[in-house]
């Protein structure tokens, strides 16, 4: 069982992400509608991967990433940042803050699924030290 936390303030966007990822996989999904909710859930429960939007009402994705990488127990957690086109400048910032991968909306189901699977594989192989 792979626990995935999907963080986006847009409900329909979360549903789209889950729809992309649920295909034939042993994934369970937890939704978080805000950065703060995501941080709370991460502090209280263990997840295998986070799909994270950068643009959120309370605290942005950067702060969530910084929080994650500031926690010893979350050092290795794979974080896939998903954001809207036009934000390419954020990419470097997100990766510098500690995001593992970066994708731009719109994306295809294949692309996000492949990304998530490869991140989980790398994680299993110990590459996200």
């Amino acid at each position: 069982m792979t626990e995935i936390l999907v963080v986006d303030d847009s409900k329909v966007m979360r549903e789209m992400i889950v729809a992309c990822l649920r295909v034939g996989e042993d994934f369970t999904f937890t939704h978080a509608a805000s950065g703060l909710e995501a941080i709370e859930k991460l502090a209280l429960k263990a997840f295998d991967l986070v799909v994270l939007d950068l643009n959120m009402p309370d605290i942005g994705g950067f702060e969530v990433i910084e929080f994650i990488r500031g926690q010893d127990k979350l050092q290795r957690l794979p974080v896939l940042v998903v954001t809207t086109r036009g934000d390419e400048g954020s990419r470097v910032r997100a990766l510098a803050a500690g995001a593992s991968q970066f994708m731009t909306k719109p994306f295809t189901p294949d692309a996000i699924l492949a990304n998530v699977q490869s991140m989980l594989r790398l994680d299993a192989a110990g590459f996200h030290e």
Partner: peptide, 27 residues
């Protein structure tokens, strides 16, 4: 800031469902 955020979300959603005219205006 709130306006910016809303438009950014509209843009992202419209891009996902392929409504380019809205993407353009929101952008």
């Amino acid at each position: 800031r709130e306006l910016f955020r809303s438009l950014h979300t509209i843009k992202g959603l419209s891009a996902m469902v392929g409504i380019e005219p809205i993407v353009d205006v929101a952008h």
